[in-house]
Design a protein around this nucleic acid. Structure first.
Lengths: 117, 117
DNA sequence: TGATTATTTGAATATATAATAATAGATTAG
DNA sequence: CTAATCTATTATTATATATTCAAATAATCA
């Protein structure tokens, strides 16, 4: 396993390492969408989405094809969906432990009434 | 899916987004190792490995337990191995296309004699 | 104590992010 | 046709974060 390959892998994960980009991939996992639709679903500004799409495009994770006025984006590999699913499982296992964030999340959504005993 | 959860996911992938850290995880996927052994296997300096281990520890991806002089590191979740495996499949599928790096890799290792037809 | 193992710190450099503004192509109304 | 509009991308720049390397620290062992 050479060094360039390691760098390549790192760059791939780096492409996923952004809240908006993950959100975009989750949206595209449900089906192809135009930039405008992605914006609406995510609730984010146009140029921000476009910037992150560019990062994903550069890493060959998504591709966009022009359709008249719009550009429709699609995942280049359905395995991305599986990757996100595996990641989600990891979140649900051990990693959750330390998270003050998730503790709050729990209080907000699961146990809205009871005090912390 | 709230914003903090997205940020959490992004941070997780960010922890993987480094050549040395990926290398470390690949080593630990084969079995628990001391820092010194990891260094040797990877061919990297001590403090560098320790720094990256700290990042992985902070994200709860690995944990280290002291054993006398040494510290033995272990993956906190075997699903990490599966994640890396899925990622590898993705590399082997579509993503490889654009890579000049991988083209070189191919020429060096797979097709040493034949010219590009 | 001296050697080994590991972590931590600090500082210089590099890279990524976010927000705004500028640009470009396609469509539609006048 | 051409001007205005909608869609999307790109460029710019200030700020924040990450990386790297070297040196200092800490704990254990022989």
């Amino acid at each position: 396993m050479n060094l360039e390959m390691q760098q390549f892998k790192a760059d791939f994960f780096k492409a996923l390492a952004h809240p908006l980009r993950i959100r975009i991939l989750e949206v595209l996992a449900e089906g192809d969408q135009s930039v405008n639709e992605i914006q609406t679903l995510i609730g984010s500004e146009g140029s921000a989405v476009s910037q992150q799409l560019q990062v994903l495009r550069a890493k060959n994770i998504v591709s966009g094809t022009k359709d008249g006025n719009k550009v429709i984006y699609t995942l280049k590999d359905p395995m991305i969906i599986e990757l996100l699913a595996v990641a989600k499982q990891i979140f649900n296992n051990h990693l959750v432990d330390t998270l003050t964030i998730l503790d709050k999340f729990k209080e907000d959504e699961d146990v809205p009434v009871s005090p912390k005993n």
